[in-house]
Design a protein around this nucleic acid. Structure first.
Lengths: 336, 336
DNA sequence: ATCATGTGCACAATCGTTTTCGCTAATCTA
DNA sequence: TAGATTAGCGAAAACGATTGTGCACATGAT
């Protein structure tokens, strides 16, 4: 084994193999150009293995100016949905030999210290799931020259991998319309992020196509989280002429809506039908299984990494939209 | 502003301020020992600010052998509960000036490449939420000299921050006993991890104290996830003499049990009472609100970082056990 | 005026890599 | 066989920071 206190370095291997450190470097990284006789390479390899050498990432990065590392920025680590995308992204990045560094950067906006910490040269590229529609910070990053790809949320013309939220909102609403609902409420997300804005837009489009003029009072704003969704659901279900169906911006909001319905002694789906978004793991398991819009989260995470890799290689890349799909279950009254 | 292409370095600042790079370094980091006249320091500060200097982390780490970075290993990024702990850990680490790097390392066991990648000198310390009870890999890490703290799962005598799972399992079971249940089933976790083993142990202890001899057939093994929990619940509820209550190892398993109960046309809590663990965000929102055992996840995440910081400072640290608490809701028939 | 005492800073050596540049010796061409 | 080519590898200069050492110069005391 190796001496406990001393990590192996190029120099120690060189000494062991009786060659110069630079030769060791060349031999180990197997450069195509430089020809080192197989015998020497083998001897060096053996010595390196013997000392179980691991190149020092700091020294390497200092010299090469590449850290083999991509930064992932997520609004909240506790978001199961984004968690899935990020886990997939992490795997894919590792396929390319990259490490990932995840930061959560909620509510930090343009002054995000979290993202700044990713920027200070430690990372070769960024995947951001935190973008807002008019995000001045993106320009800052763009100006810094650090390549990035948006995930889940789009913004401007920056390359992004997103679900087609317009279609998703449209499908969810159409699903409810097809079931005979006319007064359909929407617990929206913030209009400042693409997912919130586009799903609401899809919702209104579906209504209009069905000859129903969308009204403002049937859209209650949420913030993607349980607390704000509860408030929104209270507003909708407290309406004098309450909706018979609710399309919620995500599954946790849908769950909150179910809780509020229960408090109002309304049955789901008989009195109020509910549709969520993202089709999270819990949806089929709920006492009243939740109808939800499914988007290929894992594929999105992987794809974002692939796009980033292309950007790192200097290629131009285009944004990608993934097709959503309604998974009908009991909460909308469609299955059972 | 600064020239776009060129990042500021100590050298460029030195040039601007008319001093030597080493002086700039000393001035900027404000060493207490070295006396540099205030005037010079001010001049250097100004130059640094002007060029908006950021020290290169790689160069710094190469020289100082400290990366100001802690590695977090989590079984799955999609676990909401661990996600909360890790988010808290991340914040706390930043308070100390440390970056965090999160990897998910499921099912990799002793050969975990994810954790190995954290070890190769990039990190100053590790927080592991992946430990199994007899985890040979921990010895490897210990031998490498890299300080670490276990989180959520304990193992051997290594310093750990965990909930008191024995008490948690005991409380959950006692809660059901107090409600008059006698045949209480348990969807367990793997016995190879402390949380699984200890909660089951607490479960048996409570039964024995109530004069009930725990039987093997009332404990069905799960893997913390929905699929295995569904299978376990099927086993329990398919029993000729089925249990009237189930204590599940976590909330998603409890949810799965509810789904299976529903499939068997059993009412919750009338026909079967259910208790979960971790009191996740969704628990109070479920159509049948879930009774669950609450542990202070955020505090645990923070504490783990604090312990690690102490270890980094060379102090000896002791493990910490956090007190759990039953939050009674409708699924156990205790509230409503 | 001279020598001890410090202060303020420059010099240079690291940390472990990668990479450019040449030097030596072997091989090839004529 | 002499001269041109080339393969193989050593020397050394980066990358950008930290840090031990020591040279000037100013100040003080004698």
């Amino acid at each position: 084994m190796d001496t406990p206190g001393h990590k192996a370095t190029l120099k120690s291997i060189a000494q062991a193999a009786g060659v110069h450190p630079s030769t060791v470097s060349r031999a180990l990284m197997g450069m195509p150009g430089s020809r080192i006789p197989a015998a020497t390479v083998e001897r060096i390899r053996a010595a390196a293995a013997e000392l179980n050498y691991e190149p020092d990432p700091w020294a390497k990065s200092l010299r090469t100016r590449r850290g083999m590392m991509v930064g992932l920025a997520i609004p909240r680590l506790t978001d199961v949905v984004l968690g899935q995308m990020f886990e997939a992204a992490q795997w894919r990045a590792r396929d390319f030999g990259y490490q990932t560094m995840t930061v959560s950067a909620e509510k930090e906006g343009a002054e995000s210290t979290s993202i700044k910490s990713l920027m200070d040269r430690r990372t070769d590229g960024l995947i951001l799931a935190t973008a807002t529609l008019h995000d001045p910070f993106l320009q800052v990053i763009e100006a810094s020259g650090l390549p990035f790809v948006l995930l889940n949320r789009s913004s401007g013309d920056y390359p992004a991998v997103c679900g087609d939220d317009l279609v998703g909102g449209y499908l969810a609403t159409t699903h409810l319309l097809d079931l005979g609902h006319v007064r359909i409420g929407h617990i929206s997300g913030p209009t400042s992020v693409s997912t919130g804005k586009l799903r609401a837009q899809g919702y209104r489009k579906a209504l209009r196509e069905a000859g129903i003029e969308p009204t403002r009072d049937l859209v209650a704003p949420g913030e993607f989280d349980a607390d704000s969704a509860i408030e929104a659901a209270e507003t909708l279900l407290g309406l004098p002429h309450r909706p018979t169906a609710i399309f919620a911006i995500n599954d946790i909001s849908a769950l909150a809506a179910m809780a509020v319905a229960r408090r109002h002694r309304l049955r789901v789906p008989e009195d109020v039908a509910i549709v969520g978004y993202n089709d999270s793991e819990m949806s089929p398991l709920l006492p009243i299984p939740l109808t939800s819009v499914r988007v290929p989260l894992l594929d999105m995470g992987k794809l974002a990494v692939e796009l980033l890799m292309k950007r790192l290689a200097g290629e131009k890349v285009d944004s990608v939209l993934m097709e959503p799909q309604v998974v009908a279950r009991e909460s909308s009254g469609a299955a059972g």
